[in-house]
Design a binder for these strands. Structure first.
Lengths: 177, 177
DNA sequence: GTCTATAGGCAGATAGAC
DNA sequence: GTCTATCTGCCTATAGAC
């Protein structure tokens, strides 16, 4: 059985991706996990602490994903396609990018979490730039930003029509050209 | 002096663009406008009514913007640049696209408002497709979606770095190629 | 670690006077 | 149209027992 702390993080991540971080309560978490809300406070004293743990874990995991792709996949095209597939897995559960959601909630997020968010997107863009650099693009950071923007934007839009191909079409051209 | 109803809508729109629709209360609106929250309820009985009025007014206004651009501007490039400039005006106030924000909050939004949101983005994409069609693109709807995704995504990201050029770079290529 | 109990505050919403 | 007063419910958070 997974420990409570991890189960809290997993559920909080899912709820952030679907509803937003401000849109669930410790009571929601407690009810779903099967404990009392005071137990959630034991693991994460304030909700801001939960937010920080959430983004830090997410950054750490993304680093692992990059490392795995860099190690196991040969061409930049393969790696870009793999990242796209990774985000497309969210769609079936009506999730979007957790950090994209938090970016929308940016104004009500505290400085420590903001800093982590900034780093998340910088790391992401840097990794993307590296791939486009290997593909011989003239301006890799810009193309990385374009990929990132199109990805975040299309994840925002995909739930409205309920058609996952929106993401494919929005990113069309980046992995083939 | 602007009537109270309009002042409520203006303030609610601004707060939705910065914090999100679920992140402000009737108390917030009341305090800023200088009335009591019961007066806000007089104009918009439930908060869902306010959401609907907000998106409907926004759609109506966007239609007017399209019409003005179609009438006053000659080339598709000029019109695309004008739309981009329109959204870039938000950035100085840390606003993002109101409907983009609501798209992030999609899961906690009621069916009537969802429908309006869907129509907003369809109209936007259709208008964009028309411009790209005139520019001779092979697949105008797809390019319209790419423009829209990159716009929404970059508006999400622009507040993290506080650098407005993010939007320009993310949309680079669409108006020049 | 998890529980019971509780505090203090703010949310959306309504009734009825002016 | 705007007010006062009020209801109910949920929120984050804490104290202290087991």
């Amino acid at each position: 059985m997974t420990d409570t702390r991890t189960r809290i993080l997993d559920l909080a991540e899912k709820l952030t991706q679907t509803k937003g971080f401000k849109e669930f309560s410790y009571l929601d978490l407690a009810a779903d996990i099967g404990v009392k809300s005071s137990s959630i406070h034991y693991h994460f004293k304030a909700k801001a602490d939960l937010a920080l743990a959430l983004v830090k874990r997410h950054r750490y995991r993304l680093d692992e994903v990059y490392a795995r792709f860099d190690r196991d996949l040969v061409t930049p095209q393969e790696r870009l396609r793999a990242v796209l597939a990774h985000f497309k897995e969210y769609i079936v559960d009506d999730r979007i990018c957790m950090c994209g959601m938090m970016a929308a909630e940016f104004e009500s997020i505290n400085p420590g979490v903001r800093r982590e968010l900034v780093h998340y997107f910088r790391d992401f863009q840097d990794w993307l730039a590296k791939q486009f650099s290997q593909l011989g693009h003239a301006n890799p950071p810009t193309v990385g930003l374009q990929f990132l923007s199109a990805l975040e934007g299309s994840l925002l839009l995909v739930r409205l029509e309920g058609d996952a191909s929106v993401v494919d079409h929005a990113l069309d051209g980046f992995v083939t050209r």
